[in-house]
Amino acid sequence: MRIASNWVFRETSRLGFAAVLLAGSIQAQADLRVFACEPEWAALAQELSPRSVVYSATTAQQDPHQVQPRPGLISKMRKADLVVCSGAELEVGWLPVLQQKSGNRKVQSRDEGLFFAADYVETIDKAESTGPLAGDIHEDGNPHLHLDPYRILDISKALAERMANLDPASAKIYRDNQSAFADRWQAQIETWEKQAEPLKGLNLIAYHSNFDYLLNWLGINTVGDLEPKPGVPPSSRHLASLLQKSQSLQVDGVIYASYQNAQGADWLSKKLGVPNVELPMSVGGNEDSHDLTGLYGSLIQTLLKTVTGSSS
């Protein structure tokens, strides 16, 4: 603790010095060291605290279920003040190892430096039973909750409060940033909902439950999953039965995430003669997804362009 508080003290005094130098031209903001499990939480933390040092353990090209608890992540967690993750067991295969090996007591408790987004919103699809062969099922529900903008609002509020608790001296800054973010975000939601009107009622086949929150929000139906069971890769047998099932349905497209292999989706979309769409899983998932707003905008534009052939 001594080392960490020295560090905080040093940083604060350096910032104080900088603030004096810049004499009000820039509002001084406190630093937190934030370790985000996924890039969406890094982006949100950055919105709420632009001066914090934020590190994302994964990219949008990596499956967040399957992450190596590698040394480079342990050293990052060792120095973190705050760990922000999806929760709902998404990171259960690797986060506990990092926590334990980091020896960082600040990030062990969900009341202190460990923040699970899923603790602050309702999740969908809570599984009633899980067995060893059920695949990557989450009893706590679908953890890919960052693609519902209303949930993002609730989470941003909870996260700003957590930052304020951890760093009371800058509490006002986090809360102000959050309310500014919320205003912008609310306005965006209206725009996005208008833009996405033509997507309502589409029938898509997805790869894993990655986009369920997004599709629910936009009124898009999921009529099939490339995975026979969650986390189990598409088998040719499953794809064949999916093809058969789809022929009696109206299918408008097949979607998969930026970290997923396109093979199964390619094959099925060709057979069905429908578009095959790669969607950014998170911030950094494609060129336009440089932040949360960019990510949502890009998801909607990509769907509009490829599935309905229009864009706005």
Partner: peptide
């Protein structure tokens, strides 16, 4: 030493 394309250990 561990390597995965894009750091994605799924495939």
């Amino acid at each position: 030493w561990k390597w995965a394309p894009g750091g994605n250990y799924k495939y």
